[in-house]
Simulated scan of single mutants.
Amino acid sequence: MMMLWAWAGVQLGVYNIVKDFNIALQIQPQILAFLSLVTWTQCYYYEQNWSIPRSVSTVVPIAIIMAGVEFALVFALRVGVSRGTIWPETLMAVLAALFLALGVLRHYWDIYVHRTVRGISFIFVGIDAMGDLTSLISVFFQPILDVLGMAIYGTELILWIGVICCGAYYNLSPWIRDRVKTRPRSSLERGVSEDTPTIIEQENSRHRVITLEELPSSTSVFRTPSGELTATRTRHRTDQCLEEDSRSHFPDALDLQTPR
C-alpha cells in the first residue's frame, strides 16, 4: 500500500506541476511520496526487524530514483505540451489514480474475506479522505476546470467513503447492538458477566476469562511486538485481579476445589 502511494506521488506530482496547479497541490504529492516511503521503511523495520542502517540504505536510493524520474518527466511533458502532445499528461493522471486506488482496494479484499474492517485506523481514513476532499475542492477552483485532476482525488475519496461505510456496517453496528443489550452491573459482575463480550480460553482444564477490551486493537495501521507484549501483561494482571477477588468473595468455594 505504502509503495503504491509513493509511486502515485511521483505521477501525481508530474501532473500537478505540468498543469501548473497552485503551489499547495504541487507540494502535496511530494509530501505524499516522502511520508509513504518513510512508512514503508517502518513496516520492514518493525515487522522484518531491519536495522536502521539497512532501512536507510534501502529507502534512500529508491527516493533518489523517484525524484529523478519525476524531474525528468516534468521536463519531458512540458516539451510535449509545447508541441501539442497531450496523451502523456492523461497517462500520468491515469497512473496516479490507479496507484492510489490500488493502495486502498487491498482493504476491500480483506473486508470481503473477513467480513470486518481490520488493520487500519478509522482516524487515518477520515484524515486522508478529508485531504482528498480539500484537494478536490482546490482543483475545482482552479482558473481552468481540470476533469482529470478531479477524477484523481475523487476516485480515492469514493473508495475511502466505501471503507467507512463498511466499518459502520461490520464494526459499528454490532458494537452498538452489544452496548444496548448490556445492563449495568457491579465491578465484579462486569468482569465475568454473560452480557460482556468475552473470549473463553480453556487451558489445563481451567477456564480463563478475557474481555475484548484487553485484546490488542485491530484498528491500528501497524501491529508491533510491543503491542502484543502489553496485551499479554494486561491479561496477566486481569487474571491476578480476578483470582484475588474470587478468593476474597468465595473462600469456601476455593477450598472445595483444592485437592486434599
Rank of each mutant, 00 (worst) to 15 (best):
T85M: 06
P216Q: 11
M130C: 12
N22V: 03
D245Y: 15
K181V: 05
T182I: 03
T58D: 02
I86T: 03
T232F: 06
G149K: 02
M3K: 13
D110I: 14
E47G: 03
F75E: 09
R206S: 13
R190T: 12
S226Y: 11
R78Y: 04
W7H: 14
A101K: 04
V56A: 05
G154R: 12
G84I: 02
I137C: 06
T230H: 07
H249G: 00
R223A: 11
S55K: 01
M130Y: 12
V56L: 14
Q142E: 13
L4M: 13
I111C: 07
L242Y: 04
W5R: 15
S220A: 14
M3A: 10
M150L: 15
E47M: 10
D110V: 15
R83G: 03
M92K: 01
T90F: 03
T85I: 15
G227E: 13
N171Y: 03
S205L: 07
M2L: 15
R185V: 12
P53E: 00
W7Q: 13
T258Q: 04
T85Q: 04
N204E: 14
L133S: 05
H107N: 10
M92Q: 06
I64P: 00
I111K: 11
M92Y: 01
Q202K: 14
A96M: 06
K19P: 06
L215R: 14
N204H: 14
L254W: 02
L32S: 08
A6D: 15
L12Q: 14
A72H: 02
I158R: 04
L95Y: 02
G119Y: 13
S135W: 02
L215C: 08
V94Y: 06
D239N: 07
A151T: 09
Y170E: 06
I164N: 03
P88L: 07
M130H: 07
R177W: 04
L95K: 00
R115P: 05
I200T: 11
Y108C: 06
G149F: 09
D178A: 15
G167H: 11
Q202E: 15
E203M: 07
P61G: 06
D146F: 02
S82A: 08
L100T: 08
I123M: 12
G126T: 05
I111L: 07
I200V: 11
T116D: 06
V113S: 06
Q202L: 14
F222W: 07
V60Q: 02
G103W: 14
I199Y: 08
V56D: 00
A231H: 04
I31N: 13
A231V: 02
F250D: 10
Q202R: 15
L37A: 09
Q30I: 09
Y46T: 09
W109I: 13
W160H: 12
V14S: 06
Q48S: 11
V59L: 14
V38L: 15
C43Q: 08
R177C: 04
N16D: 08
R223N: 08
F250G: 00
E189K: 10
T224P: 01
R235Q: 10
L37T: 08
G167M: 05
M1G: 13
N16Q: 13
L32D: 11
R183W: 08
L37E: 09
